[in-house]
Simulated assay, not measured.
Amino acid sequence: MGNSAVGADGSPQTDGEEPEGPRRSGPGKQRSFWRELPILVVVALVLALLIKTFLVQAFSIPSESMQNALQPGDRVLVDKLTPWFGSQPGRGEVVVFHDPDNWLAGQPTSNPNVVQKVLSFVGVMPSANEQDLIKRVIGVGGDTVECKGTGPLTVNGKPLDEPYVFPGNTPCSVDQRGGQFKVTVPKGKLWMMGDHRQDSEDSRYHQADKNHGFVPVDEAVGRAFVVAWPLSRWATLPVPGTFDQSGINTRAVVAPGALSLAGAVPVVLWRRRRGAARTR
């Protein structure tokens, strides 16, 4: 009679016999997968919604106002993260913004179906039926932007070199509605213009609205940084070098020496207080 032993699961085991492991059936695995699938779908949709809300959102270009940088039907990705850290749109950036005061009146709107609306809501598809526009930032708070004749367009007295302007267009228009202007951008506002200067209803043509054509910074959704679709049109959207030219920035700049002095004052006062405490 052979000796018997107790297996790891408490069942009797005889010499020379291997313990039997737990048996798993193929159908059991399939049932487990199908039970987990809805959870995976929900997690994926939640992640997509969070990405759309806080990180990146896709937008579809509906018109010719930003040609040739952007063509109708292009899909751009918009950075929505940096504004959460206090960053504001800068000169030369291509920015998506909410309609500030009925700029899109009379424009045709799309009629997406239920599926398109859901996919758009979670960010899988470009935003549908939202009142958003896309233009280039020309002036920020404190800037003076001016157009005379056919151009060039000037910012703080500095003429801009604008190779992105649609071929055949002039930087400035000579029409009476808004082609000729000189404006000073208030703090917290933006002056926006399309690259297709003779086919863009931008800040120039809305100077009679409640914002006098300026776009509040709070209405900015984010900066468009890449053309993602179609793949044949893939390209980044960098800030043109003309906006970095010397003298264009009118914002007050504290000299490094002044910063060093300002930082040294608290240190001197602290050391004096320590010295006084020791002599007491």
Rank of each mutant, 00 (worst) to 15 (best):
Leu133Met: 07
Pro72His: 12
Asp199Cys: 00
Asn102Ala: 01
Thr250Val: 12
Asp175Phe: 11
Ala277His: 01
Ser260Ala: 15
Val215Ser: 01
Gln107Asn: 10
Leu47Pro: 03
Asn156Trp: 06
Val42Ala: 12
Trp191Phe: 15
Asp195Trp: 06
Asp209Leu: 03
Ala255Tyr: 03
Leu45Phe: 06
Trp191Ile: 10
Gly2Glu: 14
Phe225Tyr: 13
Ala128Leu: 09
Ala252Asn: 05
Ala208Lys: 15
Ala48Arg: 13
Val42His: 04
Ala44Thr: 14
Gln13Leu: 14
Gly73Ile: 06
Gly275Met: 11
Phe54Asp: 00
Phe166Glu: 07
Thr150Asp: 09
Ser120Lys: 00
Gln107Cys: 02
Lys80Ala: 06
Lys158Tyr: 10
Pro163Met: 02
Tyr205Gln: 07
Asp199Gly: 05
Lys29Ile: 14
Glu162Cys: 00
Ser32Arg: 14
Arg251Ile: 03
Gln13Pro: 00
Gly142Lys: 11
Leu104Ser: 08
Asn111Pro: 02
Thr150Ser: 15
Glu36His: 08
Arg274Tyr: 07
Gly26Leu: 14
Val96Trp: 02
Thr109Trp: 05
Val217Thr: 13
Pro171Trp: 00
Val122Ser: 05
Phe214Asp: 04
Trp103His: 07
Val41Tyr: 03
Ser200Asn: 12
Met1Val: 11
Gln116Arg: 08
Asp244Tyr: 14
Glu130His: 08
Val239Ile: 15
Gly275Arg: 15
Ser11Trp: 05
Ala69Ser: 09
Gln198Gly: 10
Asn3Met: 09
Ala264Arg: 14
Gly16Glu: 07
Val215Gln: 00
Arg177Leu: 12
Asp209Ser: 01
Ala277Leu: 11
Pro27Gln: 09
Val253Pro: 01
Pro22Phe: 09
Lys135Pro: 00
Val265Leu: 15
Lys187Cys: 00
Val42Lys: 06
Asn169Leu: 04
Val268Met: 11
Ser200Met: 13
Val43His: 01
Lys189Thr: 00
Ala5Tyr: 14
Pro240Val: 05
Arg272His: 10
Ala58Thr: 05
Pro152Asn: 02
Ala264Met: 13
Cys147Phe: 04
Glu93Leu: 07
Gly90Leu: 11
Ser11Met: 13
Ala258His: 08
Thr14Leu: 06
Met1Arg: 13
Thr154Asp: 04
Ala128Lys: 07
Gly7Phe: 01
Pro72Trp: 05
Thr154Trp: 08
Val185Phe: 04
Ala252Glu: 10
Asp132Arg: 08
Val217His: 12
Arg24Pro: 03
Gly222Ala: 03
Glu130Ile: 08
Thr53Phe: 04
Val96Phe: 06
Asp175Asn: 15
Arg274Ala: 14
Leu160Ser: 02
Thr150Asn: 07
Leu133Thr: 05
Ala69Thr: 12
Arg278Tyr: 01
Leu45Met: 13
